[in-house]
């Protein structure tokens, strides 16, 4: 199969993730969409590495996974902290700071 198809898939995943961040209202879902964007970038790295016959793109994907895992730890901590205070994880309810 033509490896370029994986790049199209990666672009579609990234777009879906970005749209999800902009449209969805639940902080957890927004966060999952961000993870989707990171994984789309991973797929692009791995595909480019495959197309060039190089390894470094695949290693970069591992780095990204570790960083994404660290981000999950911090992100879930913040979302749960906000949920315990407000009994809601909706990003629309967080509206004290404006203008």
């Amino acid at each position: 199969m033509n490896p370029a198809n994986y790049l199209y898939l990666s672009a579609i995943l990234f777009t879906l993730g970005a749209l999800g961040v902009l449209i969805r209202r639940n902080a957890i879902v927004v966060f999952m969409c961000i993870e989707l964007m990171l994984n789309a970038a991973n797929l692009a790295f791995v595909t480019f590495a495959r197309m060039r016959g190089a390894l470094d793109g695949q290693i970069i994907a591992f780095f990204t996974m570790v960083v994404a895992a660290a981000e999950v730890v911090v992100g879930l901590a913040i979302i749960i902290m906000v949920f315990r205070t407000r009994r809601s994880a909706s990003v629309d309810d967080a509206n004290l700071l404006k203008y």
Binding site: A27, F31, I34, L38, I78, L97
Partner: peptide, 26 residues
Amino acid sequence: QEAALKYFLLGAFSSAFFLYGAAMLY
């Protein structure tokens, strides 16, 4: 807490763009 939530979500969003840009340049 609201500031942390906004900073986190928007910051992670922008760093995903950074990473995808890095993938394109790769």
